[in-house]
Design a protein around this nucleic acid. Structure first.
Lengths: 209, 209
DNA sequence: TGTACATCAGTGAACGCGCGTTCACTGATGTAC
DNA sequence: TGTACATCAGTGAACGCGCGTTCACTGATGTAC
């Protein structure tokens, strides 16, 4: 009951990795049970020993996305403590690195927002929301340290994530040597948002936009 | 040579509308030539009198998206001239209205970013870029009128579009009565970005984020 | 340790289905005289 | 206006293909004695 189980888990892993790899091309929605099974080295019928159908596999992929995002945050926080340069820079560089390393995982997140099923979309949305909330907490903490209260932290977090994911999505389709530009651009954009999120200190600058 | 041609164009329109309608469910990538033909009321073989394949139809859908976006901008500018309330509010309300009215068109834009083919993605990206540039011009104009120079207009435009499209995408999956909240949220987020994009007037507020 | 039996991950063949594409065709519309 | 011919949007049957799913099966691993 150990070697056997281990073997099974190994095949399961292979299926997950195969799905991740194959969905790089045209998204998870575009791949078939047969393709995934073949890539993982088993027959289509064998697939059913592991998942009820492709949707179940898809939901597990989304879990992996969530896991990846949390790892990303942990890594980013760690880098911020070393604080050479700004916190934003450290975070963005970690983020772009993550995207580069986990392109296929990020593609799932990016691509299946209007994916194959309602359950799918809901799960993905929940995962992203969780990420936004964690970013909000980070912002809150940072703003207290710097003594720069923010006007509306959750909103700022949402805007930051929206912009980061959009630019991140672009990064996937770009040759590596142009990643650096994207990184700089993203840093500037996020700083812009943060600047707008800081509550005015003395004379509030008038704006009528 | 007139009635004939007219009839043909009519069928073509039906195919386009059918594709738009069917792709509402699970995106354009998920629909078949046979489905579209059936929905449009012709046999699958007849499809080829109008398009070489589904990809060609898809590219035309993207053109329609572009057309829609330009109409949206025109409408938003018109509303701004009436300027009851802020320019941002007028724009956002027009935007959300557009999304509500053209949900399927917007879904194409939203959903096929990592769509079926490279040509597809490129076309979509080009269309969005064009939109970003027009927003940038609007921002530039607005900032001159208000005498509030912006630090980096193209960047601000990009961030604005990223946030607007993200929130817009959420709007699609939400019951109508909650649209209002989303509208307000989007307005706040865009104002936040604009605040961050305005060049500091006198003493630049220090920030180390 | 050796034997008899149970478990169960993975096999391979078969199924019915919807797909994209081809083809010769039909019949209404358009054109030339 | 009437006739003979050309055009061509749309038909309907046929094709081969990959799909998801089922099923009885095999044979290696695990368990009980």
């Amino acid at each position: 009951m150990l070697d056997r189980n281990e073997k099974k888990l190994q095949t399961r892993r292979k299926l997950i990795e195969a799905a991740l790899m194959l969905s790089a091309e045209n998204g998870f929605a575009a791949i078939s049970l047969r393709e995934v099974s073949k890539e993982a080295g088993i027959t289509p019928a064998g697939f059913y020993r592991h998942f009820h159908d492709m949707e179940e596999l898809g939901l597990i992929l989304i879990d992996e996305v969530g896991l990846g995002l949390r790892q990303l945050l942990r890594e980013a926080r760690r880098k911020q403590l070393d604080h050479k340069g700004s916190a934003v820079r450290a975070s963005v560089e970690t983020f772009i690195q993550y995207i580069t390393d986990n392109a296929n995982l990020f593609r799932v997140l990016q691509g299946e927002r209007q994916g194959p099923s309602v359950a799918f979309r809901k799960a993905l949305f929940a995962e992203i929301n969780r990420f936004v909330e964690e970013i909000a907490e980070d912002l809150e903490r940072g703003s207290k340290i710097l003594k720069q209260p923010l006007i509306d932290t959750p909103l700022a977090a949402e805007a930051i994530v929206a912009v980061a994911f959009t630019v991140g999505g672009e990064a996937l389709d770009i040759p590596k040597h142009r990643r650096k530009e994207l990184t700089e651009r993203l840093i500037k954009e996020l700083k812009m948002i943060l600047r707008g999120a800081v509550a005015p200190t003395k004379k509030p600058v008038k704006k009528k936009n």
